[in-house]
Design a protein around this nucleic acid. Sequence first.
DNA 1: CGTCAGTTTGATCGTTGTCAATCAAAGTGG
DNA 2: CCACTTTGATTGACAACGATCAAACTGACG
Lengths: 250, 250
Amino acid sequence: MAGTRGKLPAGWGGGQARPTRLLHGDGAGILRIAASRKSGNRAMRAGRNMFRIGERRDTVYFLAEGWAFLYNISKNGRRQILHFALPGDVLGFHPAGGDVTSYGAQALTDIVVSTIPHKTLEHLAIEFPEVGMTLARMMSRDRDLAYGHLTNIGRRTARERVANLILELYVRYGSQWPGACATEMHLPLTQEHVGDATGLTSVHVNRVLRGLRQEKIVEFHYRRLRILDPDRLVDAASVDPQVMRSWARR
Amino acid sequence: MAGTRGKLPAGWGGGQARPTRLLHGDGAGILRIAASRKSGNRAMRAGRNMFRIGERRDTVYFLAEGWAFLYNISKNGRRQILHFALPGDVLGFHPAGGDVTSYGAQALTDIVVSTIPHKTLEHLAIEFPEVGMTLARMMSRDRDLAYGHLTNIGRRTARERVANLILELYVRYGSQWPGACATEMHLPLTQEHVGDATGLTSVHVNRVLRGLRQEKIVEFHYRRLRILDPDRLVDAASVDPQVMRSWARR
DNA sequence: CGTCAGTTTGATCGTTGTCAATCAAAGTGG
DNA sequence: CCACTTTGATTGACAACGATCAAACTGACG
C-alpha cells in the first residue's frame, strides 16, 4: 500500500536541471478538450484499484500524473501485467461502451487522473472529428506495445525479457523530458511486478537481475534503476533499434 | 504456398444449410464508405505477404474474405504470431501514418482485401465523425484480444494455451454466422502456426494435440478441426465465460 | 511414382518453476 | 526510541515442463 508515498513526482536522479515535461501530444489534446468540460481531476493513492476485472465501467481515465498498470488474473490465480501506464495514457476505453472490463487497473504510485464518461467522449467525437482519430491512434499504439510484449514473452529468454522491460520503461519514461538523458531513475516496481509482466516468477527475475548486475549492465534495487551500460542493455534485450525508437512518444 | 488453394470459402463442414454471413458491423460500415470511394478490391494467394516488417506503409487493409495473420520475427529469428485476422478486420493501421510497421502480415488462405490509403482514411474521418470512433473501437478490440493472448502465453500451461487458441478461433470464426453452431470447421493452420501463436514449438504442440485427441476433446488433423466435447474444451482452456463471449463480435 | 510439406514419436537436455529458509528495509505501535 | 510486523529481496536444492535433436511417417500434389 505504501511504497512511494510522499515522493510522488520522483523525477530523474542525478540532480541536473529538469527540462520541461512533455505528455503524449495526442492525449494532451483530448485532455485539454475534456478538462474544459468540467470533468474534474482526482488523486488516488498508490496501490488503489482504479477499476477491477469484470466491473461495469462507463468512464474513461486520463492519467495525468504517476504510474499505473493494467493486469489480468487468470483462472488459476496467476497475475499477468498487460501494460504499464505513464502520464498521457488513456485507460479503460472499451470497444463496447458500458460493457464489463476484462482487466483491472491499479495505481503504482500516487496518481492524478481525470475521468471522462464514455458518453461525453462519444459526444466530443461527434463535435470534434479529430477526437475519434486521435483515440484510434492511441489505441493502435497500445496495441502495438502489446504486440511487442507478446513477442517478448513468447519468443525470448528470461534474460532478454527482463532487459526488454527495463529498457522499454526507461525509454518511455525518459521520453517525457525530451533532451534529457539520465542514467538513473525511480522505477516504482517490485520484482514481482517485473515477473508478472514478463511471464516469469519473481524468484527467477531476481536471479536474472543478479546476472545483469554482476555483468555491470543495470542495477535495480529497491525501486531505483541505474543503467550502467546502455549499449549492452540494448544488446541483452535483443530489440530492434527501430522498434526501440517507436517506444518514445513524439 | 499452396495449402487451401481452390477451396477458399472453406465454410463449415457437416453440410447443413449455410446461414447468412455477418461481418463485424463496425468494420463493414467503414468498408461500405471506403469502397464507395473507388478503393478497389484485390485478391491475394495464400502464403503471400501483404506487408513485411519494417516496410513503409501508407495504406490500410480491410480484410473482406479469408484468413490472414500478423507476425513478428525477433532478433534470434523466431517468429511470434500476434493475431489471426478474419473477415471484417482492419490491418496495417498505424499510429504514425506512413511510418514503418513493426510487424508483417501474411495471407493464410486466398484472400480478398480492399486497400484504403491512410490519407483517404484521414479525410473520411473528418467528413464522417463516426469513422474515427469506429476505428478506435476496432483498435481497442484488437488490443483487448492481444491482452488476452498475453495472459495466455505468460500465465498458462501449454495445454491451456493450445485449447485457448483453438477455442478463440472457433468462437470468432463461428460468430460470423449467427445462429449456426457447427462442431467441425476448416482451420487453415499448421501446427507450426499454432506453436508460433502460443509461444511453443510445433513439436510440443503436437504432443498437446495428441493429449486432447486421446481425451476426446478436440481433433485437429490437416487443417480440419473437430470439437468433440465443447464443455471440456472450455474447461481445458481455463477461460472466463465472460471473456469468451467478448470474442464473438456483435 | 516421387517429392515435399507437415505430422508424429522417442530420447535427452536445460531453462525456469517450486518450495523453503533467511535476510534487509521500512513502516507501526508502545 | 525501540521491539514488532510486514513487505520485498535473496539464495539454495530440487523438480518439471517444454525445448532440442533426430528419425520415421503420412497425406497431398504434380
